[in-house]
Structures are given as C-alpha cells and as structure tokens.
C-alpha cells in the first residue's frame, strides 16, 4: 500500500506534471505527489502542468524544490489512502523515520523549506518543519533561543524589556 513507487490510482501509468523552479530547473513528478500542495492541486486538477508546459514556481529555488518533492513523493502513497488509516505500524514507523531524517538539516535549508511549505501549502510538511523549530526552541532560555535562531545580541533597551517581562511572567521562568 505504501510502496514507494506505486501509481496514483490512475489506471496504469501515473500522470506526470512538470514544475519549474525559480532558477528554471524542470522537475517531472507524479501528479499525486505534487498535489500534496494545496496551491498546486487546483491547477493540476484543471489539467495544468502536463505536456510541454510546466507550472512555474518563482518563489522556490531548485535545491529547495528538490527537497520538497522528496517529501511529497514519500508521503503521496499514504495521502492517497486518506492519511493511510490502514497503514501498518511498519509503514508508519518508516514515514516517521523518514521525517526525522528529513529535517536533520542545517538552518538555512530548514528556513527555505519552511518558506516553500508555506507558499505551496503542504500541510504535513508545514507541521513537520514547525515541529522541528519548536524542538530547537524547547527547554532553552530566551538568550539561548536568540543564539540558536541567530538573532543579534539584544540592545540595552531590549535587555531591559526582557527583564521587565521576566518579572511580569515570573511563573513562566521557573
């Protein structure tokens, strides 16, 4: 059921669509995988992206799109089964393993992915990257979070505001 290269339910050969990244690289991918993007779904349903045409994605570069499509291809079979309610524990564990490894990337790639998932409205990917950033923040003090996320050091005014907030919400700084 969750075989990696299974078709999309269209009798026989799966329908393919072409996506064009901001730097003009063409990616040919199964329509079922690209349709995980809410943004692309309607265009694809209307028959767009096939043949010589492609769907241009001016906000997504090729490196990011390649990564996004890796996610979509992996998750498409389960999505086609309505979130795979009948998936075996093994299938689910495999997707979980894939997801964990998928977001084990450096921050600049992660931010590009977040942006792309947001623009393309890929729900599962949006949740996955949000969870990754939440995990990066969890258990850290505000100063540690600032460093983790690459914020510049606080100005004296910001430091004063931080101190005032810590007094106001003392219970949250135990």
């Amino acid at each position: 059921m969750a075989a990696p290269e299974s078709g999309d339910g269209n009798n026989g050969a799966a329908r393919m669509v072409t996506l064009i990244s901001s730097d003009n690289t063409r990616f040919e991918v199964e329509a079922a995988a690209a349709s995980l993007s809410q943004t692309l779904q309607l265009t694809i349903l209307d028959g767009g992206g096939g043949g010589g045409d492609g769907i241009p994605l001016p906000n997504v570069d090729s490196a990011t799109l390649s990564k996004v499509l890796e996610y979509c291809i992996k998750h498409a079979p389960a999505a086609a089964n309505g979130g795979a309610p009948n998936a075996t524990a093994v299938d689910r564990a495999e997707l979980e393993r894939f997801d964990n490894e998928f977001v084990n990337i450096d921050q600049s790639v992660l931010y590009s992915l977040i942006m792309a998932a947001h623009n393309l409205e890929i729900e599962g990917l949006q949740s996955l990257v949000a969870k990754k950033v939440a995990d990066m923040i969890k258990g850290k003090s505000p100063m540690e979070i600032r460093r983790t996320l690459g914020f510049p050091d606080p100005t004296p005014e910001e430091q004063a505001e931080m101190n005032a907030h810590m007094l106001e919400y003392g219970w949250a700084y135990e």
Binding site: R146, F151, P152, H165, Y173, E174
Partner: peptide, 30 residues
C-alpha cells in the same frame, strides 16, 4: 536573523507547539 523574515502564520504554528511557559517566553525574543 533569517527566521524573522518568515510570515507570522509560520510562527503561530511553531509557538502553539510549545509548552505554555515556553510560549510565554517567546514574547521577549524580539
């Protein structure tokens, strides 16, 4: 500070995944 260029909706998703007290603390980040 590249994360700050992301849209607000992204942060909402992130913050609502944090435990309450950690969500509170994000208010002082910037």
């Amino acid at each position: 500070d590249r994360i700050s260029s992301l849209p607000d909706g992204v942060f909402s998703d992130i913050i609502s995944l944090l435990p309450t007290e950690e969500g509170v603390r994000t208010q002082v980040l910037s």
